[in-house]
């Protein structure tokens, strides 16, 4: 009961705020709505019995990545003149193709048989210990590759940031 109410609450918040993110003219407001969107999807993770993922979502995305976004946005000029709504070329073509895409997806969802209920996860699912063990045994190679990617990005940032190497 409570979980259903919470699910609809978080789901509605994340969808509305996601729409607000793309419809605001002021980039600062967009970024802030994105923070709310990320937080409510963290709530959804928590409801799916993955508390660790939920907290990491808030810690990393809301607490660190979005702060850097805001940091940059605050330093650029967002006065009234600079913030005219932008006009996209071929807007109609884009709109029609996106609408078509959504129609196809909705049709597929309605046409195919309804989803089977997912099997219940055991109590340890989403636990930090289980997650850690999985990351360092079964998924060790993708895990290491991801860290390699981050390292490459970091070196790239340093190279771009330094004027004289």
């Amino acid at each position: 009961m409570l979980e259903t109410i919470l699910f609809y609450l978080f789901a509605a918040t994340s969808v509305t705020t996601a729409l607000l993110v793309i419809s605001r003219v002021n980039p600062l407001m967009s970024a802030l709505w994105l923070v709310v969107c990320l937080a409510s999807s963290a709530g959804l993770f928590a409801l799916l019995s993955a508390p660790f993922l939920a907290i990491i979502q808030i810690l990393v995305y809301a607490g660190a990545v979005m702060v850097l976004f805001l940091f940059v946005i605050m330093l650029i000029d967002i006065s009234k003149e600079a913030l005219k709504p932008r006009v996209v070329r071929f807007a109609k073509v884009v709109a029609v193709s996106i609408t078509g895409y959504f129609t196809v997806i909705v049709c597929i969802v309605l046409w195919r048989p309804s989803f089977l209920p997912a099997p219940l996860a055991d109590a340890a699912y989403g636990d930090v210990k289980v997650l850690g063990k999985m990351l360092l045994t079964d998924y060790a190679v993708p895990f290491e590759l991801a860290s390699l990617l981050l390292l490459a990005a970091m070196i790239g940032a340093v190279v771009m940031g330094k004027k004289k190497l």
Partner: peptide
């Protein structure tokens, strides 16, 4: 179960 992480996550906000 992730109490301490919760503290860090919220204080980062």
């Amino acid at each position: 179960s992730a109490g301490l992480l919760y503290v860090i996550a919220l204080s980062s906000l």
